[in-house]
């Protein structure tokens, strides 16, 4: 079985800062593999151990994404492909999915594509489904369990309080939820081996496609503004009295503001 895993390198912060143009200030921030994408890697590695598989991990981004790809190989992925080109810069979900889709076509035969449900720095959850759309694949999204059969794949799809079981023919694309598994730590011997492996680097000329579909040029969405919402300072009022009295005062207050 051949599996492709799409990953993204993201800054390791919960509160990122942007410059005046709305771009992320990445300087000084450590980078990590997007957490959901680690679930995707783990899902592929679990299948590899259970049924045997060859895993290629693919990522689009600047040259420093090499670090994330090597870490994926240290976890157990077999091959890595880096899509890097200045013309890929500024891509939105559509252009990113287009670029990844074109590259995957170039890589040849595969049985499954895994990606994380969403990236922690964008939270769009669009790229995985759009790759499936580009490649004309069945999409099995929000997977919290995966079963591979003979030519078919079944997932437990997380839908809020409900779980839906869906099945589709392979090849297919699956987006992975954090509930799917606990990603493993890289193995120390593979840490050393991953630096001996070659990473395939592809630019725009290597993946074919239409020039106007890549990067900022190919992105239908435009970022207008990014800002941190201002936090209003709250007024603190102490409700005096016994617990019963203060509880009654609290209920009155909540009624006043139509909270209850």
């Amino acid at each position: 079985m051949k599996i492709i895993v799409c990953i993204k390198q993201v800054p390791d912060v919960t509160e990122v800062k942007w410059d005046e143009n709305g771009s992320l200030i990445r300087t000084g921030l450590p980078s990590i593999i997007n957490p959901n994408d680690k679930n995707a890697i783990e899902a592929a590695l679990t299948l590899k151990e259970e049924k045997g598989a060859e895993i290629t991990v693919v990522s689009m981004g600047p040259p420093q994404v090499e670090e994330a790809l090597r870490e994926a190989m240290a976890m157990g992925c077999d091959h890595a492909v880096l899509l890097t080109d200045r013309k890929f810069g500024g891509a939105d979900c559509w252009a990113t999915a287009y670029t990844l889709g074109m590259a995957i076509k170039k890589l040849g035969h595969f049985d499954l594509i895994f990606s994380g449900v969403e990236a922690m720095d964008g939270n769009t959850a669009q790229v995985g489904p759009e790759i499936a759309d580009f490649l004309g694949l069945p999409l099995l999204s929000y997977a919290e369990a995966i079963e591979v059969g003979e030519g078919t794949v079944k997932i437990h799809q997380k839908l809020g309080d409900l779980t839906r079981v869906i099945e589709g023919p392979m090849p297919a694309l699956i987006t992975c939820e954090k509930e799917l598994n606990v990603p493993r730590i890289p193995r120390m011997d593979l840490v050393f081996e991953c630096f001996e492996k070659e990473i395939k680097v592809l630019g725009m000329a290597d993946v074919d496609g239409e020039l106007e579909n890549f990067g900022l040029k190919g992105s239908p969405t435009r970022l207008r503004k990014v800002f941190s919402p201002k936090r209003a300072k709250a007024q603190v009022e102490f409700l005096e009295g016994t617990p019963k009295e203060s509880s009654q005062k609290l209920v009155e207050k909540l009624h006043e503001i139509n909270a209850i």
Binding site: E67, E71, V191
Partner: peptide
């Protein structure tokens, strides 16, 4: 080196 840094990161995760 990048290798040294990944060794540290992996050891920390361990």
């Amino acid at each position: 080196t990048p290798l040294n840094k990944m060794v540290i990161k992996t050891a920390r995760a361990f």
